[in-house]
């Protein structure tokens, strides 16, 4: 079989009477006679004169179409074979854990607890009952304790279920998770620095209240993005 180098393949673009050559898995085919390759173009998307191994894997048809055209040579320097994106495989034990869907299970806790904390702070502001504010603090504390598990399982799910590919929705979800942790850290630090007789008379009372209230829309937005990734619309 004739050896064809990269320059010859590139020159086989099917334009101005030149032959239309395509390479697939190291083999070079002449598709000039195919009506599907008029002017060196296939479906207005694929150009001749190139290695189309990966494009063929993505095509709605299989490699059987190559049986209809003539192989005219082999690539002189085939290079590394083009491969579809590979997702990492988790270790066996982790795979069993991920099969239990730990992320959707664990996210319920910070979402519910942080939202409840915001609700109790709101009720404390309206009714001025100190025990409601204390209930908010306990819920917030538990929500913060639950957050690392949700974040860790989310990162593992992203890595193994979505190949760790960084896209806008994952960027937004990560940014909001960081914002949630910052809100919680500042709110808890502030609350612990405030006097026990916490109330509207304390100078930072309103700052604390706003910080806790901000948890509710933040976790709701994180949950919304998670739902967008997972559930059909």
């Amino acid at each position: 079989m004739r050896s064809i180098d990269g320059d010859e393949l590139e020159g086989g673009d099917g334009v101005e009477g030149r032959p239309a050559l395509v390479a697939v898995e190291g083999r070079v085919y002449d598709v000039s006679a195919s009506r599907m390759w008029a002017d060196g173009k296939h479906m207005k998307a694929h150009a001749a004169g190139r290695d189309l191994t990966l494009e063929l894997q993505a095509a709605p048809h299989g490699p059987e179409v190559l049986e209809r055209v003539e192989q005219v040579g082999e690539l002189a320097e085939p290079g590394a074979p083009a491969r579809a994106t590979q997702f990492p495989e988790p270790p066996a034990l982790l795979a069993r854990v991920l099969a239990l869907h730990p992320h959707p299970v664990s996210v319920h806790f910070p979402i519910a607890l942080c939202t409840t904390a915001a609700l109790f702070v709101l009720l404390a502001l309206i009714f001025g009952i100190p025990s409601l504010e204390r209930a908010a603090l306990y819920n917030l504390g538990l929500g913060v304790l639950a957050a690392p598990a949700a974040i860790l399982t989310g990162l593992l799910s992203w890595r193994y279920n979505y190949g760790g590919v960084w896209t806008p929705i994952f960027r937004r979800k990560t940014a909001l998770s960081v914002l949630l942790l910052l809100l919680a850290a500042v709110a808890l630090t502030l609350r612990l620095a405030l006097p026990e007789s916490f109330g509207p008379e304390a100078p930072l009372h309103w700052v604390y209240a706003v910080l806790v209230l901000a948890h509710a829309p933040t976790v709701a937005a994180i949950g919304f993005l998670g739902g967008n990734i997972t559930f059909p619309r």
Binding site: L54, E55, Q57, A58, A59, P60, A82, R83, A84, T85, Q86, F87, G163, V165
Partner: peptide, 12 residues
Amino acid sequence: EQKLRAVLELLR
């Protein structure tokens, strides 16, 4: 799945 992963690689 195989076709989607191939398209994904092309897009990346």
